[in-house]
Each structure stands twice: as C-alpha cells, then as structure tokens.
C-alpha cells in the first residue's frame, strides 16, 4: 500500500492518505468529540477566573460577565491562605514521597526474597487488597482505629497506661494519620511495578554473582537495585511532577477545622470556596493557579527525565 501512494504527486498523496484513513477518523471522532466537550469546554470556563460571576445566574450570563483581570489571583496570592495552602500541599506531598516512595521498594525487595512461592502469592494478594477499597471505606476504618471513643489504638494506649491521643483532631498527629493510611492503602499495589521489573532482570547476572560468592544481601544491592533503577527514577520524577496533588479525597474525608492548619490543601480550599461557599470566580482562579503550576512541574519532570537519558512521558 505504501508503495502505491509513493507514486502519486505530493498533494494528492496526502489527500489519498487522508481518504484512506477516513474510517479510522470516524472511529476516533466520538472520542475526540468527547474530549472537546468534557475536557476542553471546561477549559473555556476558566475564563470565570477573570470575571466576577454570580453563582445563581444562568451559565450563559456568567460567560458575559465583565472581566476583572487578575484580581482574584492577586487576592489569593496576597491572602493568608496562599502561604498556608502552598505549604501544606507541598509538605504533605513531600512527606508522602519521603515515606511512601521507598517503602514499596523495600517491601518489593523483601517479597522477592521470600522463599516459598505460595506464601509470597498469599502475602501479595492480601497486600493488594486495600487498593481496591474506596477511600470512603478506608477513611471509615481509619476513624474507627484512631477515635478516642473506643478506637482500637487508643484502647491499646490506655491499656498501656498512656494518655489517649486524639489523632484526627491534633495538628501534631494528623499528617501521620494521612501518610500512614495512604501507605497502608497503596503499599502492596505499588510493589507490582517493582516486582515486574525485577522479573525482567537477566538471571545470568544472578548466577554469575552466585558463582562469585555474593550473598543475597549483596546481590540485592548490586544487581536487583541497579536493575530496576530505571523504573525507580522514572517513578520518582513523575511523583515530583504530581507534587501538587496531595490527596484531595483522603483529606476531604478525614480533616476537620481543628487541623485545617496542617491539612488544608489547595484542592480542599477550592472545594470549600467553590462548592460550599459558591465563590465561583475566586475558586476557579485558585484552581487555575494550581493547574498552571502543576503543568509546569510535569513539564519540568519530563525534561529532567530526558536529561537523565530516560524516556519521558512524551
């Protein structure tokens, strides 16, 4: 087919290539239309961020509202919440990264060293389980575990003669709860990638190492880890790209006013301002601000990935 098209003059070649592919375009069309309506039309709506829209007007009228320029952005950046939200968002993300990133790797290495294949399978299956449970359930389980009113952990503390701790209402403990429950939910699932990468390592390397008299620990350090370094770096770079996503759903379900100081992130603020208080314009502006920064971060992550000589996202 390709040969045939080469014979045609340039313009005609293009046209015929296009014509030949019309059925494929038809297959793409529904998806494309969907993207335009559900992903690009809302982008048109970010114009609200530069207006002052009244929440109870019909949307058509909102679009006609006069522009106020960057007023909402200025208000946000000058507001007290800007600092707090940025700080919380980044800190929670970084904490997640610091603890949530190495643990699955370690767990994967440990799983890899389990001798009994069946036992390993069982442990894996159990550890994947929480991934399939919604955040609503996990948040419910967390509240049950940590409540001061008969919660398991506080009962243990009390039995040990310690004072009970109100984990969910205490600024000193709230983030630990967030991070631990986050790890609990995704630990097992996040090992899958590593385990898959490990199976991809050339077994001859191991055999050679055994011949050289390398112990298991050294094999893990010198063969397994370098063997999956690629995937580790990629994952790390992209979790840095997603730094502004600090876990909206989880925080939404667990936080309360006493811990706003350490738990309020951009997304929860956008939700409260927009959906609850109905400050559509301001909320859109804050959301847009976040999207823009997130985009820069992802692009940067991709550039970094390429700098490291790895394949980027695009």
């Amino acid at each position: 087919m390709a040969e045939k098209s080469l014979l045609l003059p340039k313009k005609g070649r293009k046209w015929s290539a296009f014509k030949r592919h019309i059925p494929y375009y038809l297959l793409i069309l529904p998806g494309l239309i969907w993207f335009i309506i559900f992903r690009y039309l809302p982008m048109y709506g970010v114009s609200f961020a530069f207006k002052d829209v009244a929440p109870f007007e019909p949307v058509q009228d909102m679009l006609k509202a006069p522009s106020v320029g960057f007023r909402h952005f200025k208000t946000f950046i000058n507001s007290y919440y800007f600092k707090i939200l940025m700080k919380n968002t980044l800190e929670i993300s970084l904490l997640r990264l610091a603890f949530g990133f190495p643990l699955p790797l370690i767990f994967a290495l440990m799983l890899n060293e389990l001798r009994n294949v069946r036992y390993k399978k069982v442990v894996q299956t159990i550890s994947y389980l929480p991934h399939f449970i919604s955040w609503v359930v996990v948040a419910g389980l967390v509240t049950m575990m940590v409540t001061t009113d008969g919660g398991v952990i506080n009962n243990i503390l009390k039995a040990m003669g310690r004072k009970e701790i109100y984990f969910l209402g205490d600024v000193r403990y709230f983030r630990s709860v967030l991070i631990i429950s986050g790890i609990w939910k995704e630990l097992g699932w996040n090992t899958i990638i590593y385990l898959a990468a490990i199976t991809g390592i050339d077994t001859q390397l191991y055999e050679a190492a055994i011949v050289d008299g390398c112990g298991r620990f050294r094999r893990a350090i010198h063969i397994t880890l370098p063997g999956i370094a690629n995937i580790i770096i990629i994952l790390l770079i992209f979790s840095i790209g997603g730094l502004l996503n600090a876990g909206f759903e989880q925080i939404m379900l667990l936080y309360s006013p006493p811990v706003y100081d350490v738990a309020d992130i951009i997304d929860t603020y956008v939700y409260r301002k927009g959906i609850i208080e109905m400050n559509y314009s301001f909320s859109t502006a804050v959301g847009l601000f976040k999207s823009a920064i997130a985009m820069v971060l992802i692009v940067l992550a991709n550039v970094t990935a390429k700098l490291f000589g790895r394949e980027g996202l695009w």
Partner: peptide, 17 residues
C-alpha cells in the same frame, strides 16, 4: 476566611495543641 481561621485556632488553643 476569618471565621474559619478563628474557629480553627480556638479549637487548637482549647485542645492544647
């Protein structure tokens, strides 16, 4: 914003955090 901030801090003071 003012109410949220005050509410949040007051509870912290009362709870001793």
């Amino acid at each position: 914003d003012m109410n949220t901030k005050i509410d949040s801090e007051l509870t912290k003071f009362v709870m001793g955090t």
